[in-house]
Design a protein around this nucleic acid. Structure first.
Lengths: 106, 106
DNA sequence: TGTGTGCGAAACCAATTGGTTGCGCAAGTT
DNA sequence: AACTTGCGCAACCAATTGGTTTCGCACACA
């Protein structure tokens, strides 16, 4: 199974969970309350998010606190940055083309 | 089926295709050459990417030119921005807490 | 010690994914 | 007119997803 940030944020429920946990750690029950699906379904998402290294568990008595590994989301930014740099390069090339057209015109 | 940018970038092959098409439009065959899987497999990815509104087709004779809809990727940035703002707010709250601790200490 | 609660694990399900091969059409080429 | 090429489509497949319900364990509390 592919387990990376991109997989983690592919699902809307998981994106919502991530945003919820920015503020602070939460237990599965507390998280599940905010969704229509069952606690177990949410727990599955939590498992996937943990496997993607986006979340970490912390047992406290019989409760488990899931908290966000915010750094992991930087992988998305990294890819986006790569994309933007290519875009910039593309426009540079376009600039070159325009430059050539200009010099031809005179 | 879910058809959004997050779905589009969930697959590594699709991410690679996106990066390839930043530079300029390409035909399915030209794209498929860069991958190990079959042309049809790549074509499936192209279909998904088009459905996700990340790519557009342009027929030219018997060739089809796929080109990038770069704007669509802004949806990712938007979500990331939302995330960052929540993070900032969280730190603001932390600041408030630290502030309170400081005033208590005197 | 019994009872309620928080949780993961397992079994099951239909739908989707990501790949394959085979086919056929339409546009070019000879 | 016959062949080649570029491409999408359909059928098939195993694996994964996202959900469910049932179960059982461990902790907390009476």
């Amino acid at each position: 199974m592919r387990r990376d940030v991109f997989q983690a944020i592919a699902d809307p429920t998981r994106r919502a969970i991530i945003l919820m946990l920015v503020v602070g750690a939460m237990t599965p029950n507390a998280i599940a309350e905010h969704f229509d699906s069952s606690r177990q379904a949410v727990s599955k998402h939590l498992r996937i998010l943990t496997e993607c290294d986006v979340l970490s568990k912390e047992q406290q008595g019989r409760e488990i606190h899931y908290h966000l590994n915010a750094d992991k989301l930087k992988d998305i930014e990294k890819w986006l940055e790569q994309f933007k740099q290519l875009m910039a390069k593309r426009f540079d090339q376009l600039d070159t083309v325009l430059e050539q057209l200009k010099s031809k015109r005179k």
